[in-house]
Design a protein around this nucleic acid. Structure first.
Length: 461
RNA sequence: GGUCGGGUGGCCGAGAGGCGAGGCAAGGGACUGCAAAUCCCUCUACACGGGUUCAAAUCCCGUCCCGACCUCCA
């Protein structure tokens, strides 16, 4: 089976064919850096990171662009409130986002352009749109796209333009039509601005993505991604601008669904308990990633602490098997993939189905450990590690290796082995009170002992 | 008002005309001195009412409920 992906525009899953052989270009709308990320933001990051890793694994050379929107109303509002320069606010939260992405092992984009670094490209695009009659500058410093002149509009969301509700704050005096949207916004006193032929101002939201996608990926590219809420207006308007400029733009649209809480979309009003930093106090980054990646990217993921904990438990079982297999085989598993896993991933990234294949590998692998069948242990461990690698959850990935512990491990191992030797001799003379005291003592220190066919092994909780 | 998703076992979550996804929890069993870990077994669900069909969780009609978007949200 070849890779098939959903396309929001056609509402169908279809075979993926890249524009250029063995190369894929992807543009994903990144964050507006106005505050720290919650787990919904990073779910989008994880979903598209899995897509990227799967494309790479499938042999593609992937160019992955994710922008940073570093100028917008909310950033300006926060700047005013916190008495900081707007650019300091943007940089502060951009760094928090970058750190969160890193904690979750989300690969850095090939290029990560900032909106304010591409004003030149935006002005060029606006000039083009004005020259060909698609956009107009009413003279007050604003620039609008004239949506009634478009050959086609609202093809992603399949809405009728006359059914749209006009914005509550629509400034009808400058727009030819209330549905026209701003490419550029005239400067307001005290706000940052950049000079243009139509007056000083700042970018409208939609313009930046069209300009940056064009700058880094050219007139047409393979995949455009983002959150479901961006379909309208953001992506519709990107399409409108880009097609009006004569660009082919995105060949396929992918949108990830929400993390919800109590059935509702996560938002700032629900508080900050779901910020990535808060969640990472209770689980590791690799476990949060496993949880966020485990649901299908187009399905809502209903968050609850219990669901997160359950998912983490499941991951630890898998991780524990891999470590044990490594001890028995004497080397780390290699990266292999089973057919069922491949087929699931090729079917529009059916991660939940792919996870079922990992569970089967785990069961067979554990059986093999009982039977001491090293070939079967290796096969299943290899396939599990290969699958985890695609999902960005390989426990052997240096991104997840915790610093500080490695230096002490040999010394600790030696000390625990001494205690285990005492326990073994106590057990031999049937002095179970003594042997259990050793085990309980270690348990109090957070060290769990398991008796296996290959002898006792220890792990830190 | 318009557009679009959903409702699946105790819980989480796939599937989309026939063949019990998977996980977590729970109960039973095997192994163990006892545990832990592991394996085996059990728990046969698809909002409601009609319809189509040899066959419906899946398709159609209707109803109820939940949610998203409708001009700067991942």
């Amino acid at each position: 089976m070849t890779l098939h992906l959903y396309d929001t525009a056609s509402r169908e899953v279809s075979e993926f064919k890249s524009l250029k052989p063995s190369q894929v270009s992807i543009y994903v709308c990144g964050a507006t850096v106005q505050g720290p990320p919650h787990i919904g933001h990073v779910r989008s990051g994880v979903n598209f990171d899995i897509l990227r890793r799967w494309l790479i694994k499938s042999g593609y050379d992937v160019t992955f662009i994710r922008n940073v929107t570093d100028i917008d109303d909310k950033i300006l509002h926060t700047a005013k409130h916190d008495e900081m320069p707007w650019w300091a606010v943007a940089m502060k939260y951009e760094r928090v986002f970058t750190a969160a992405y890193a904690e979750l092992n989300i690969m850095p984009p090939t290029y990560e352009p900032r909106a304010t670094g591409h004003i030149t490209q935006m002005i060029e695009l606006m000039q083009k749109l004005i020259d060909n009659g698609a956009a107009y500058a009413p003279g007050n410093g604003d620039v609008y796209l004239e949506v009634r002149k478009l050959k086609r509009y609202l093809t992603l969301s399949r809405q009728n333009i006359d059914d749209l509700q006009a914005a509550a704050d629509a400034d009808e005096t400058n727009k030819k039509d209330v549905r026209d949207f701003a490419l550029w916004k005239a400067a307001k006193p005290g706000d940052p601005s950049w000079p243009t032929p139509w007056g000083p101002g700042r970018p409208g939201w939609h313009l930046e993505c069209s300009a940056m996608a064009h700058a880094y990926l050219g007139e047409k590219f393979d995949i455009h991604g983002g959150g479901l809420d961006l379909v309208f207006p953001h992506h519709e308007n990107e399409i409108a601008q880009s097609e009006a400029a004569g660009y082919g733009f995105a060949q396929r649209w992918l949108h990830n669904a929400w993390v919800t809480q109590s059935g509702e979309k996560m938002s700032k009003s629900l508080g900050n308990s779901l910020q990535v930093n808060e969640i990472l106090k209770s689980v590791r980054g690799i476990e949060l990633r496993w949880y966020l990646g485990s649901a299908h990217y187009r399905s809502m993921l209903e968050y609850s602490p219990a669901a997160l904990e359950e998912s983490a438990t499941n991951f630890r079982r898998i991780e524990s098997f891999l470590k044990r297999a490594t001890e028995i085989i004497g080397e780390k598993p290699t990266l292999q993939l089973g057919k069922e896993f491949r087929d699931a991933m090729n079917d529009d990234l059916a991660v939940p189905t792919a996870l079922a294949s990992i569970s089967e590998n785990l069961r067979l692998g554990n059986q093999a450990v009982t039977d001491n069948d090293k070939a079967a242990i290796a096969k299943n461990a290899n396939e599990i590690r290969g699958a985890l690698d695609v999902l960005g959850c390989d426990p052997f990935d240096p991104a997840f290796v915790q610093s500080g512990s490695s230096d002490l491990t040999p010394a600790l191992d030696g000390a625990i082995k001494l205690a285990l030797a005492e326990r073994a001799s106590a057990r031999e003379r049937k002095d179970f009170a003594a042997s259990d005291a050793i085990r309980d003592g270690l348990a109090d220190l957070g060290i769990t002992i398991e008796d296996t066919a290959q002898g006792p092994r220890w792990s830190i909780n």
